Simulated assay, not measured.
Amino acid sequence: MGYSPSVYKFAEGSDVPVPLDLELVRAVLEPHDVGDPRLCFDQDGGLQFWIRAGDGGEAEIFAGDSGILVERPRAGGVFGIVAEPVSRLGAVAVDPSEGRIVCRAEEYAHLPVSMRKDAVVIEMTGERLGAALLGGHPG
């Protein structure tokens, strides 16, 4: 079974994620895509990427209006790539195995109250995001 964090954006404490700016997601992730460019869009209008970081770390990414799924990311540079759209979207990352929410201070106030107790507030860098999601100390 693979480890697959998700990315969502919340507003004003609502527990329903708000739609993402898919053009921004595409602009940020496309330069790191090593997959077939013809497969960038799925039949539902979502985006698909196979990203690779300079250190060889990879992840498959599926993005739709309501969120982003990051399939099997390896520790290292791939988290730097993932941290950029999280930050630019004003979104949060969710650790599915622990139910932990990772976000910047700016997004914490927008989380549903029920999610705030599990939130880890960090500076949204690749190193800190990877540490927070993989169970290390985010610093």
Rank of each mutant, 00 (worst) to 15 (best):
M1V: 13
M1K: 14
G2H: 14
Y3F: 15
Y3E: 10
V7Y: 06
K9L: 00
E12I: 00
G13N: 07
G13E: 04
G13Q: 09
S14N: 06
D15C: 07
V16H: 03
P17K: 01
V18G: 02
V18L: 01
P19Q: 02
L20Y: 04
D21K: 04
L22H: 02
L22K: 01
E23T: 03
L24A: 01
V25T: 01
R26W: 10
R26F: 11
V28C: 09
L29D: 03
L29R: 07
H32M: 06
H32E: 05
D33E: 03
V34R: 09
V34W: 03
D36C: 02
D36G: 06
R38W: 09
C40L: 15
C40R: 15
C40P: 02
F41I: 08
F41Y: 12
F41K: 09
Q43K: 14
D44S: 12
G45A: 07
G46R: 06
L47N: 05
Q48T: 11
F49P: 09
W50M: 15
W50H: 12
W50T: 12
R52M: 13
G56Q: 10
G56F: 11
G57Q: 04
E58G: 00
A59L: 12
A59E: 11
A59H: 10
E60M: 11
E60N: 12
I61Q: 06
F62W: 11
F62R: 07
A63M: 10
G64H: 09
D65A: 08
S66Y: 03
L69A: 07
L69F: 03
V70E: 02
E71N: 12
R72I: 04
P73N: 06
A75H: 11
A75P: 08
G76L: 09
G77T: 09
G77H: 13
F79W: 15
E84I: 11
V86E: 08
S87E: 14
S87K: 13
R88Y: 05
G90M: 05
A91Y: 08
A93M: 15
A93I: 09
A93H: 08
V94D: 10
D95S: 10
D95I: 09
P96V: 13
S97N: 15
S97G: 15
E98S: 15
E98F: 15
G99C: 15
G99I: 14
G99R: 14
R100A: 10
I101L: 08
I101Y: 06
I101S: 02
V102N: 03
V102K: 00
C103K: 05
R104Q: 13
A105K: 11
E106F: 00
E106K: 00
E106S: 06
Y108D: 00
A109N: 00
H110A: 08
L111Y: 02
L111H: 01
L111E: 03
P112H: 10
V113C: 08
V113N: 13
R116I: 11
D118F: 14
D118R: 15
A119H: 13
I122L: 03
T125D: 05
G126D: 05
G126R: 03
E127Q: 07
E127V: 07
R128T: 06
G130E: 02
A131G: 06
L134R: 02
L134N: 05
G136P: 04
G136H: 04
H137Q: 11
H137A: 05
H137D: 10
P138T: 00
P138R: 01
P138M: 04
P138W: 00
G139N: 12
